[in-house]
Amino acid sequence: MMDEQFAEGDSLLHKRDPKAKIIASAIFITAAALTRSSTAAAMFLAFAAILCALTGLPLRPILKRLLAVNSFTFFLWITLPPTYGGNEFITLGPLSLSVEGIRLAALITLKTNAVVLAIIALLGTSRIANTGHALETLHLPQGLCFIMLFSYRYIFVIYQEYQRLVRAARLRCFKPATNIHTYRTFGYLFGMTLVKSWNRASRVHQAMILRGFDGHLIPLSQDRYRRSDTLFLLVILTLTLSIALVGFQYP
């Protein structure tokens, strides 16, 4: 995300207008998040995977994102099955695992992966500036667009400041261990990261103001909404709704 690495490319999805992609992802995410059917969730995942394949992006960075997300769902797999309760249980040695717990963990995992892949395919394939601009033309409150654009800048700034401080600590032979010195050092590192990021972010903001920035980020490349974008939107909408209907049939 720092380099907007997914935005480089010239696939069918890269060429779509960000407005169409924002609406498409809003529809997809809502439908995928609301479904209670594992069948539908699996279909959403397949759909999102196909979209990702259409972007022609390299597999590795995408898998890396999925790995990061699934380190969270991993915790669901450890906690839900033993604790969820219900009527059916599977006994595995000393453990008795709730079937409903397993089902729920699976459902959440499928949904999460589907949403992440859809975001990469739909939102990741536009530059942040273009997406921000599209949000504005979709009449989202300006404040909201501003926050979105700036969280993007801040994440980058915070990350850099943190790295700089960690490097400085390491250069002075700091080795993390389980003791008060380590905890205190990390406390200082996080605290200083926040303070320094805040200061840097305000200087960056000043630099932007001096160059005439007034809250609207104007993208350098112009997007044009074409008929193919409407077509694209209709295809996504139809498929998403069909999957949602499948979800009602097979709950």
């Binding site: 380099d3 530059r127 500036a129 200087r203 960056v204 630099a207 350098l220 490349s221």
Partner: peptide, 24 residues
């Protein structure tokens, strides 16, 4: 570092002119 904030050089240099109302 405080002055450059766009991902690419061209976007950063074009940032000011765009804010001044230049066409893309």
């Amino acid at each position: 570092d405080d002055q450059l904030f766009s991902p690419t050089v061209i976007e950063d240099v074009a940032f000011g002119p765009l804010n001044l109302g230049y066409s893309q």
